[in-house]
Design a protein around this nucleic acid. Sequence first.
DNA 1: GGTTACATGTAACTAGTTACATGATTAG
DNA 2: CTAATCATGTAACTAGTTACATGTAACC
Lengths: 209, 209
Amino acid sequence: MLDLAVLGLLKEGDLHGYELNKRLKTLVGGYATSFGALYPALARLERGGWVSSTAVVPTSDPDDPTAAGRARRTRRRSGRSKSGRTRKVYHITEAGESHLLELLQEDASNERRFRLQLAFCRFLSPDRRLELLELRRAHLMGLQARGRRNPEQSTDPYVRSLFQRDRERLEHDLAWLDRLIATERNHQQGETEPMIDRSLQIEPGPDTP
Amino acid sequence: MLDLAVLGLLKEGDLHGYELNKRLKTLVGGYATSFGALYPALARLERGGWVSSTAVVPTSDPDDPTAAGRARRTRRRSGRSKSGRTRKVYHITEAGESHLLELLQEDASNERRFRLQLAFCRFLSPDRRLELLELRRAHLMGLQARGRRNPEQSTDPYVRSLFQRDRERLEHDLAWLDRLIATERNHQQGETEPMIDRSLQIEPGPDTP
DNA sequence: GGTTACATGTAACTAGTTACATGATTAG
DNA sequence: CTAATCATGTAACTAGTTACATGTAACC
């Protein structure tokens, strides 16, 4: 699962482990993010050829993707600007990119994985993306049906309350997914059936040359 | 976590592994339940002295806690009624019961664990139970505060939608928890402060005697 | 006569957590 | 000077999944 998250983040740009972990923290819901999992994952991804790494000595390097912003503020006094240690900046390879596309489509029944899949589904083609959403929807509908087939009949109020919340959460999730799917369909229609009269439909970009 | 589930289920009555797994299936939300986890857990619990087991040869034994119901329906023809194999029926020990009480109170920041804790919180004393609910509430409030301190500012619509759902889910969960806590408090008032005629000080409940 | 349910278990694997070790740099 | 942040990593642990092995018995 971390593989998916790491490759997704690296697809947006090269990063080193520490920075990856910070971004993971905001992205990942429901579980912690730890170096103890991340660094081994990065090593594994590199061995597999999905990513490559470069050791970056933190001197005042204007190409440095993360230090640039801070370096401007921090008015460095000597050659080295900040950060005590050489960083290993990771870059996603071509193999890694196609691997990411695979990871983005498998399963979707896993809550955590789907979360990551959605977070990076912009890298999928529109129809693959729709597939993913539909797959998730099918899974949730299955859960709902299963719940209705054998309804809870506990006498304990706490257990009943728990299952009540489950049902509500499921409904809410399905409604949310359906909204996502609907907008997705609209956009696809706007892009695949537009041939006639584009001039009146497509909004012009900010720069009109 | 399985320990908590198993001890909780056993506290309601003796069961064998296969039956435990079935009950787990309906109880546990968010993850699968597998024999591959359950049987080792049972062995571990037995080694630790939290449970004890008895091998039960499935003859037409009227004391059998699980076959009884079926046996009545199934009109057995010979000595042995059903089930191909001897079962190991587990019983919670006294040590197990006090261990269960401990497990019911630790942490509550873990989603899955809290689910189980709530499912068996009826075994806690009213004030301990309230503590548990408050602990969970504090955790969720912390999450909410953290989310508000550094709000998401992704440009990606899917990521934004994801975080939007997170916020809604948190709110919903908190409202649900608050309802639980409120009814809990009402019940406690009804049980611990009933003696004297407090009627002029404490706001009276819905029923005025 | 094949599928499903009952019943217990092991082995290999996946996934993540906690705690530790190490050390530079910077802000107060 | 000391606490926080940056930065990379290892080791031991927790928790659960998938797949396999093995066999009986009830149902249709």
